[in-house]
Simulated assay, not measured.
Amino acid sequence: MPHPGWAAFSFDGIGTSWEISTPGPLDGGQRRRLLDVVETYDAAWSRFRADSIVAQAAREPGRLRMPDGAGALGRLYRNLYRLTDGAMTPLIGGSLEQLGYGPDYSLRPRGTPVPAPRWDDVLDWNDAVLTTTAPVVLDVGAAGKGQLADLLAAELRSLGAGEYFIDASGDLLNSGPVPVAVALEHPYDPGRAIGTLSLGTGALCASAANRRAWGDGLHHVLDGTTGAPVRTVVATWALAEDAMTADALATALFFVSGKALQQDFAFSWLTVFSDGSAAYSAGFEGVLFE
């Protein structure tokens, strides 16, 4: 519990566990409205359910109208697609399924890694309308959990909740003003921390090769240009004003240096490499253990 005495609302959504903490308990109607936000998002973007909008895109090309927020998500992805030279892409779903991370959770590769299709060859993302020229497996997991946290925060504010703390399985959003002490999980041992950080108003999101890992060195952070898992980075953290940006940048740090990303984004960051070294921004006000 981030603040002693606060009430917690826990639930599962988009394949992970959530906890929303507020100074007072949320009533049944408020909880249903929050769960409706989760269901709307999942019904649009989940590649793990056959009735989602993106599941339709995997079956046939066409024109899809997505819910509110799709435009901001597309613009963020397009920018990071450019900055990473195509390594970070919403078209990575087919590459993930090739390595066994598909709706059936087989976790057995079908064969060698397959690059994601080039954005301009198959996808036109114009605000909330997506037009595809071939069947594509969209996966917005690199930013989606963060965006859903932001959407839940907006719903909480509309319900009159001025203070809240959202924990989306370790991706955090704090309304402030009271800081919350956060442990930074060790990339090779979830029971240990490599440091601590005090999270004020804003979001802290992380990405790590040990999360959603399977098989012989396989994990969920794939390079879209090769379809293979990234080997040089093992864990990242990003601090930003909103959770969607922080979530996306935590993944982008697997492909591009934090210094390069700071040319386009106002955020602070920490990257831990597979050789045991680390790099971080001057604004990352955490404490790393020896």
Rank of each mutant, 00 (worst) to 15 (best):
G94V: 02
G94S: 08
S95Y: 01
L96A: 05
L96W: 02
L96K: 04
L96T: 02
E97L: 03
Q98P: 03
Q98K: 07
L99M: 09
L99Q: 01
G100I: 07
G100L: 05
Y101N: 07
G102T: 07
G102I: 09
P103L: 09
D104H: 12
Y105A: 14
S106G: 11
S106M: 09
L107A: 06
L107W: 13
L107F: 15
R108G: 11
P109W: 10
R110W: 10
G111M: 10
G111L: 08
T112K: 12
T112Q: 15
T112P: 11
P113Q: 10
V114M: 14
V114Q: 13
V114W: 03
P115K: 09
P115R: 04
A116F: 02
A116Y: 02
P117L: 00
P117K: 01
P117Q: 03
R118G: 12
R118D: 12
W119V: 05
D120I: 04
D120L: 10
D121P: 02
D121H: 11
V122L: 02
V122K: 03
V122A: 03
L123S: 04
L123D: 03
L123E: 06
D124V: 15
W125F: 14
N126E: 15
D127K: 11
V129Y: 09
L130K: 04
T131I: 13
T131C: 13
T132M: 06
T132H: 04
T132I: 09
T133E: 13
A134V: 10
A134N: 07
A134L: 10
A134Y: 08
P135N: 05
P135E: 08
P135G: 04
P135V: 08
P135C: 10
V136E: 01
V137I: 13
V137A: 14
V137C: 12
V137K: 07
L138C: 06
L138F: 11
V140T: 10
V140D: 00
G141I: 05
G141R: 01
G141S: 04
G141L: 02
G141A: 05
A142I: 04
A143K: 00
A143D: 04
A143N: 05
A143F: 07
A143T: 05
G144Q: 02
G144C: 04
K145T: 02
K145R: 03
K145H: 09
G146K: 00
Q147G: 00
Q147Y: 12
L148P: 01
L148T: 04
A149E: 02
L151Q: 12
L151E: 10
L151K: 05
L151S: 09
L152A: 05
L152T: 04
A153Q: 02
A154Y: 14
E155A: 14
E155H: 10
E155K: 14
E155T: 13
E155S: 12
E155N: 11
L156M: 07
L156Q: 06
L156P: 00
L156I: 09
R157S: 13
R157F: 15
S158C: 13
L159C: 08
L159T: 05
L159H: 07
L159W: 11
A161W: 13
G162M: 11
G162L: 06
G162C: 11
E163G: 07
E163L: 14
Y164A: 03
F165T: 01
I166M: 08
